[in-house]
């Protein structure tokens, strides 16, 4: 066995894992934020990622915009849809239980997905045709798109960090996540903070969805398929903990890709599931510790 080749192959797989991990992280951040504040697992989050990807498609194909302009547009549009979803559905269920909200989000997931199918059709789509040549460093291949995904995710995570720690609304979001009752007693307008939480979570999801579309292809079920790894990442990182969500995403992404060296790639999602169950059974607060 040639060890040099093996190491290169191994590192190559790690790179793929990081790329996938970035995409998963962007979804997991939103799931974690929403859980932290509204205390329910948002099953429509994957489909929000799909929606973001398709809004991106409108920007790229119909409006012929450059990628850097497509992002804010798609993220903003997805945020508006999330806010509308909250206003029209979730808001009326706030006084019910988290489990009822969860079931309602499963319904919302189906509505989003079928809306995507109605508007854009069920077939696979891509942002742009053609193959870009990868850069090669010491035998490791990395495509420009993949570099962009990693860089873009890093920028978004830093921006989110600044938002949460430097702005009034960001701090209020963290306060709500800590203790909703105390926030209310303090006079914070919790409904407004919740509104912003949806917008931010959806914007992150949209970016993740576009990256997923760049990395693979767009189809209406892409978001539902990635929902399991996204939840697994949020749980592995400690639900309600943002940096945990990023770490969890990278962990799930890397382990999923590494698993393809051992088992059939068809079973990749099973790996996310296995990590999630192990975490839930042995360390339910996640790597970095989160909310119970």
């Amino acid at each position: 066995m040639d060890w040099g080749c093996f190491v290169i192959e191994f590192l190559q797989v790690i790179i793929y894992g990081i790329v996938l991990g970035c995409i998963i992280s962007l979804g997991a951040i939103g799931v974690s934020l929403i859980f932290g504040i509204l205390r329910f697992a948002h099953f429509a989050h994957g489909d929000m990622m799909s929606l973001g990807a398709y809004f991106g498609l409108v920007g790229v194909v119909s409006l012929q915009l450059p990628m850097y302009a497509v992002f804010p547009l798609a993220m903003g549009a997805t945020a508006l849809v999330a806010a509308a979803l909250d206003r029209s559905i979730y808001r009326w269920l706030r006084s019910s239980t988290p489990i009822i909200m969860l079931i309602s989000s499963v319904g919302a997931a189906l509505m989003l997905r079928s809306a995507i199918q109605v508007v854009w059709g069920p077939d696979n789509k891509i942002y742009e045709a053609g193959i870009k040549l990868p850069y090669i460093f010491y035998g490791l291949r990395i495509k420009p798109d993949q570099l962009n995904i990693i860089f873009g995710t890093a920028v978004l995570v830093v921006l989110l960090h600044l938002f949460l720690h430097k702005t009034r609304m960001g701090k209020a979001m963290r306060a709500l996540s800590d203790n909703m009752d105390l926030a209310q007693v303090t006079g914070i307008n919790t409904e407004r903070v919740i509104f912003w939480t949806w917008m931010i979570a959806a914007a992150m999801a949209a970016a993740g969805g576009i990256f997923l579309g760049i990395d693979t292809r767009l189809n209406p079920i892409m978001g539902w398929r990635i929902l399991l790894p996204v939840f697994a990442a949020a749980i592995a990182g400690g639900i309600g903990n943002l940096y945990g969500a990023v770490l969890g995403g990278l962990l799930i992404g890397i382990v999923q890709e590494l698993s393809t060296m051992v088992i059939s790639p068809a079973y990749k999602p099973a790996v996310a599931f296995a990590i999630m169950v192990l975490m839930l059974v042995f360390r339910p607060t996640g790597i970095l510790g989160g909310k119970e």
Binding site: I99, P269, M276
Partner: peptide
């Protein structure tokens, strides 16, 4: 809610 998440994992597998 964790059971709910786990159950979609089972279904997927």
């Amino acid at each position: 809610d964790y059971l709910a998440i786990a159950s979609i994992g089972i279904a997927e597998i």
